[in-house]
Amino acid sequence: CHSECLGNCSQPDDPTKCVACRNFYLDGRCVETCPPPYYHFQDWRCVNFSFCQDLHHKCKNSRRQGCHQYVIHNNKCIPECPSGYTMNSSNLLCTPCLGPCPKVCHLLEGEKTIDSVTSAQELRGCTVINGSLIINIRGGNNLAAELEANLGLIEEISGYLKIRRSYALVSLSFFRKLRLIRGETLEIGNYSFYALDNQNLRQLWDWSKHNLTITQGKLFFHYNPKLCLSEIHKMEEVSGTKGRQERNDIALKTNGDQASCENELLKFSYIRTSFDKILLRWEPYWPPDFRDLLGFMLFYKEAPYQNVTEFDGQDACGSNSWTVVDIDPPLRSNDPKSQNHPGWLMRGLKPWTQYAIFVKTLVTFSDERRTYGAKSDIIYVQTDATNPSVPLDPISVSNSSSQIILKWKPPSDPNGNITHYLVFWERQAEDSELFELDYCLKGLKLPSRTWSPPFESEDSQKHNQSEYEDSAGECCSCPKTDSQILKELEESSFRKTFEDYLHNVVFVPRKT
């Protein structure tokens, strides 16, 4: 048989008469490798580009789960590009990614509803959504962080984005990388972005840091009482949809009607710091009717980097990364020049730590249904340095008659930039024990000054392991946590139920 035959053949030295091919099969003959313009397919066939392209389009058009959109890589027609490569849609070739590779997620039936953290986790790592997304989240724990972890990498949506009755959302900033909504599939009414009845939605994105392009379709905003109209108009300008909307697409009466839409800028007039305090004062603000001013709200939190936005980490279910302080308005003076500047002394802060701070007014709604208010920009203030805590785990070892090696770990709280350490030492008198000992005694162990690591005695271990207080009263049991108490109650309830079950099964009433 021919060298490319495997198993047997019907005619000697003829690659077209093989029972099976050793390498690849091409047009009725066995070959060692697939010549151009053919590609290896499933490690035994040679196919042309049209064959591989037909497989790709067949799966793409069917949208069946589990099928493969075949691509070409290293002269092979394979189910998908290997790690580190992405497909070129024009020629199906796998090309190296520039940075992290995109991950295209194809949605069944063309859309997916995100109504819980669990459903959001199914899209973790996706960068391109081939379909439409509907966000409908009523509640949950730590929602802002969970949504950002699972949806934060999405850069492109081919269909539309719909935010509907998501009472738990305060902001859409968890879509931190969303840059493009194509609108290839539109919501009824030709809408590519749809926001309806979101009672706590206050911000779409921080438009000073976020760009969003909507290729096709219109915007729809109705019944978002805490979303200011200025935020919607800003989205029109940034996304390129200005002029597409009709009169009733953006409701003037049901958007922002319960919001404090600040239209003035508060400026800080005085800032002073110490290692654990920050004193702030800002310019006074009074609405047209000074009785509408209820006070100020001061927001602050630790910020290692200057990239904080107002609604980071917030949701309507209680999660809030900001510390909020309510401040009463100052006494009002008739003389504008003698107006008191409101302020606040922030206490209990960490030394040498940068804080993000902003302040906003708290006002009631005027009778004319106009909203007044003022808010400052987010500023960054760093507390002063102070003395560091003591170095940890000092170790001293003498390696000769004239040297001592000293080692330690950095302090747990540096409280500033540590530039150097101060080492103090003092000579001590020799131990009298060394002169009084009889060095001729056998088995004498000389006193040693070398360091030995501390260890816990058996008594201390027994005390720590004991669940009861000892007789001397030195140790006591740790208080039980809520989960331990709940577990004990469940076990007790189970024992009672099981005992009742045994009584009912074992003891049967005697027939009379």
Rank of each mutant, 00 (worst) to 15 (best):
K103P: 07
V104G: 05
L107N: 14
L108H: 15
G110N: 14
G110Y: 13
K112G: 15
T113F: 07
T113G: 13
T113V: 14
I114V: 10
D115T: 13
S116R: 04
S116K: 14
V117A: 12
V117F: 12
V117C: 02
V117Y: 03
T118V: 04
T118H: 14
S119W: 04
A120N: 01
A120W: 07
L123S: 01
R124S: 10
G125Q: 13
T127V: 03
T127W: 02
T127H: 08
G131N: 03
G131M: 01
L133C: 01
I134R: 06
G139E: 08
G139Y: 04
G140M: 01
G140F: 03
N142Y: 07
A144Y: 12
A145S: 08
A145L: 05
L147N: 03
L147M: 09
E148Q: 14
A149R: 10
A149L: 09
A149H: 10
N150C: 04
N150W: 13
L151R: 00
L151W: 02
G152T: 01
L153A: 13
L153Y: 10
I157G: 00
I157R: 00
G159D: 00
Y160R: 05
L161V: 05
L161K: 00
K162P: 00
I163K: 04
Y167R: 07
A168P: 14
L169E: 11
L172G: 02
S173I: 13
F174G: 02
K177F: 07
L178F: 03
R179P: 00
R179Y: 10
R179W: 05
I181R: 00
G183C: 00
E184S: 12
T185S: 12
E187I: 09
I188W: 05
G189W: 03
Y191F: 06
F193C: 07
A195Q: 03
L196Q: 14
N198I: 02
N200Q: 15
L204N: 04
L204P: 02
W205C: 02
W205A: 04
W205S: 02
D206R: 03
W207D: 11
W207L: 06
W207G: 10
K209G: 07
N211E: 09
Q216M: 07
K218M: 01
F221T: 11
H222A: 09
K226M: 12
L227G: 00
S230L: 05
E231Q: 15
E231C: 09
I232S: 03
H233S: 09
H233G: 01
K234V: 12
E236I: 04
E237Q: 13
E237R: 13
E237M: 13
E237N: 14
E237F: 15
V238I: 09
T241C: 15
T241F: 11
K242A: 07
K242R: 06
R244A: 04
R244P: 13
Q245A: 11
E246I: 06
E246D: 14
E246V: 12
E246N: 15
R247V: 05
R247M: 07
N248I: 09
N248R: 09
I250V: 15
L252A: 07
K253F: 09
N255E: 05
G256Y: 06
D257I: 03
D257E: 04
Q258M: 05
A259L: 11
S260A: 12
C261A: 07
L265Q: 14
L265C: 05
L265T: 04
L266C: 03
L266Y: 02
R272F: 02
T273Y: 14
S274D: 04
F275N: 15
K277Y: 09
I278S: 01
L279I: 11
W282A: 02
P284S: 05
W286H: 01
P287N: 05
P287V: 14
R291L: 09
R291I: 07
D292V: 03
L293H: 04
L294A: 05
M297R: 00
L298I: 05
F299Y: 03
F299R: 14
Y300W: 08
K301E: 05
E302S: 10
E302G: 14
E302Y: 08
P304S: 05
Y305V: 15
Y305M: 14
N307S: 14
N307D: 15
N307Q: 11
F311W: 15
D312L: 04
D312G: 06
D312R: 12
Q314Y: 01
D315S: 14
C317W: 03
C317Y: 11
G318A: 04
N320F: 09
N320D: 07
S321H: 10
S321T: 11
W322L: 04
W322G: 06
T323D: 03
T323K: 11
V324E: 11
I327F: 14
I327S: 04
D328S: 05
P329I: 11
P330T: 08
L331M: 11
L331T: 13
S333A: 06
S333M: 13
D335R: 11
P336M: 02
K337N: 15
S338V: 07
S338G: 04
S338H: 06
Q339R: 07
N340P: 06
H341R: 08
H341T: 09
P342C: 15
G343A: 07
W344A: 13
L345P: 09
G348I: 02
K350S: 11
K350V: 07
K350N: 04
P351T: 07
T353A: 08
Q354R: 12
Q354V: 08
Y355A: 01
Y355T: 00
I357V: 10
I357C: 14
I357P: 01
F358P: 00
V359P: 00
V359Q: 00
V359H: 01
V359E: 00
T361G: 11
V363H: 11
T364S: 15
S366P: 14
S366R: 09
D367V: 06
D367K: 10
E368M: 10
E368N: 10
R369N: 13
R370M: 07
T371N: 07
A374S: 12
S376W: 01
I378E: 01
I379G: 03
V381Q: 11
Q382D: 04
T383M: 02
T386Q: 04
P388H: 01
S389C: 06
S389I: 00
V390D: 14
V390S: 09
D393N: 02
D393G: 05
P394Y: 05
I395G: 05
V397F: 14
V397T: 05
S398R: 05
N399V: 09
S400G: 07
S400W: 04
S402N: 14
I404Y: 01
I405G: 06
L406V: 12
K407F: 04
K409P: 06
K409L: 10
P411F: 02
